[in-house]
Write a protein that binds this DNA or RNA. Structure first.
Lengths: 332, 332
DNA sequence: TTGTATGCGTTATCAG
DNA sequence: CTGATAACGCATACAA
């Protein structure tokens, strides 16, 4: 058991309040004489004092723990983000509570309710909830919150990629490579991100086949199987998990179609398939979440405004070869 | 703001302790009359009572939050484990605090100290610390703890893979494929897992080149570059991150060597390299951690004993072809 | 069967 | 400049 304020007070023959003020620092500490402040600090040091964060939370009604509510930390995209957010928060003195909703709205609500019970100090969330009301219903009014990846109308504290731009550069790349007809493999259309990506692709490309399902490799496999017989230049997938399933099936072909997708595909350069991906700026997404959140935690008065990041296209060698063969001559 | 015990007491014209006893359930609740118990439960329901977990923690000196202290959640191995552990804990009513040590002993110590300040209820840790003393120094004596993946002498509450068996089946597979000479690419030898794997490989195979460094792809790349000119049948890597770096460099060769490694390589079946990996039973590792921990949390009297899991070998098509060409005839 | 009183360790208010 | 003292919400020993 660590020493308490009261231990230090006894040791220094001062009162608990004095000790608290000294150790709290800030304005309160300045109203204390150099002498006693020094004595208190010395005693705290000597006794190895560490504040009881639970007691502090009970009193202040907030903790230095931030919740990260996402669908699944084993998704590499969230794994990277989670790692970066945790590092950054830790540097700023906060801890992270990890909450996997598993894309299950009910689990999301359960967690949302938990937050106030635990006096969680802030929330970074990739929401299932589609409306501001749904999302905030069970949360304390003043809880600092950052919505990540999926815009929710009426919430300005947003960090996300510009999905129109992201899908746009993907279509650009495919067009330049001579892709005309595409099979669209889409994740759940209830999810903003998947929906918007699918919409842009549908507008820009000639979609001759379409399959929708959970954002898992299995959905990609099913799409490929059902699409057999139909001739397409490319499979466009609204995320990398879907693409993995398609790639898995497609590898055997002698003249494989293009794969267009979003986010990172591991070892993409080694795969004998033409692949082009639209990559989000993951480190910037993570860091933006933290700065956006810290601003609210520090009671910065200016209202938060959305942070929208640009994506960039990345393709592998096989894609470049494909483009050599099928692509238009680039009009400079 | 949620209702408190005191609100319910006032509403039902009983006392705080009565309400507390009813809502606590268990033995205390049985000593209360059906009538008042019902009244209390009804009021709690009506007022939407949710216990303030911070206050409870302060009083009981423990919380229902479990810490997971690992090196890096963006490592897919830990991502999977983290996801499974979080799901399982959540089902059992616990939350997860995620701590990335980044393989930095100092960050590990920082986190260890934090746990008691937060009254964390239990710990699952992949430790840097090599001794029982180092690990437990800053922890409450009675904290339920599970050591994952890296045995620490004197701590029985362990969940890990049998590294001798894991490395053994990898060597078996390579031998059967006709591999004689290997380049050993090893992670930090301070880490139990890497060290043991390297030892077994060194005993079983003819190691003609050796490179050690952080368990990152970059180390694998360096190893490959420094190994150029030396003729080896295989690269044996003590984990998948190292292997990724080697694979990255090696892909271009017309007659590539075998890659032997541990844990999952994404899209391994599509890669044009002979790869064999020794796979840990990740879901079982995760679930074992939770059961091992819950047993301690429920004050089960029997002392915990280590849970050691077996691995299995998995290879891709290219490896099978390699084996056809170079392998011994299997002596039945 | 139920109520009263105390304390967990802090922060914050109000007197001096 | 400093010290009592009152919460925060809950669990629990002790009375009744």
């Amino acid at each position: 058991m660590s020493a308490t304020l009261s231990d230090i007070a006894r040791e220094t023959r001062t009162s608990i309040s004095t000790v608290s003020r000294v150790l709290a620092g800030g304005t309160a500490a300045r109203r204390i004489s150099r002498a006693t402040a020094e004595r208190v600090r010395a005693a705290a040091q000597r006794l190895g004092y560490r504040p009881n964060l639970v007691a502090r939370s009970l009193r202040t009604r907030k903790s230095d723990t931030i919740a990260l509510l996402i669908s699944d930390i084993s998704n590499p995209f969230f794994g990277q983000i989670g790692n970066l957010i945790e590092r950054s928060l830790h540097r700023h003195g906060y801890s992270l509570m990890l909450c996997n909703s598993g894309e299950d709205p009910q689990r999301e609500v359960e967690y949302l309710q938990l937050l106030s019970q635990k006096a969680i100090g802030g929330l970074i969330v990739v929401p299932m909830a589609r409306t501001r009301k749904q999302l905030l219903e069970f949360l304390p009014q003043d809880l600092p919150i950052v919505v990540l990846d999926r815009p929710v109308p009426g919430i300005n504290s947003l960090v996300a990629s510009d999905q129109d731009q992201a899908a746009g550069i993907l279509c650009d790349a495919m067009e330049r490579a001579g892709v005309k007809t595409v099979a669209l493999v889409a994740g759940p259309q209830e999810v903003q991100t998947h929906r918007r990506r699918a919409e842009v692709i549908s507008q820009r490309m000639e979609v001759v086949f379409r399959h929708e399902g959970p954002a898992q490799p299995e959905t990609g496999r099913q799409a490929y199987i059902q699409c057999m017989g139909i001739d397409v230049d490319a499979f466009a997938c609204t995320n990398n998990f879907l693409a993995l399933g398609v790639i898995d099936c497609i590898a055997a072909l002698e003249s494989p179609p293009v794969i267009g997708c979003f986010d990172e595909i591991p070892l993409v350069d080694l795969l004998p398939l033409p692949i082009v991906a639209s990559l989000q700026d993951v480190p910037m997404l993570a860091e933006s979440c933290v700065t956006q959140l810290l601003r609210q935690l520090n009671n910065d008065q200016e209202k938060p405004s959305p942070i929208i990041l640009q994506s960039r296209a990345k393709s592998n060698k096989a894609f470049h070869e494909y483009r050599e063969q099928h692509g238009k001559i680039a009009a400079s």
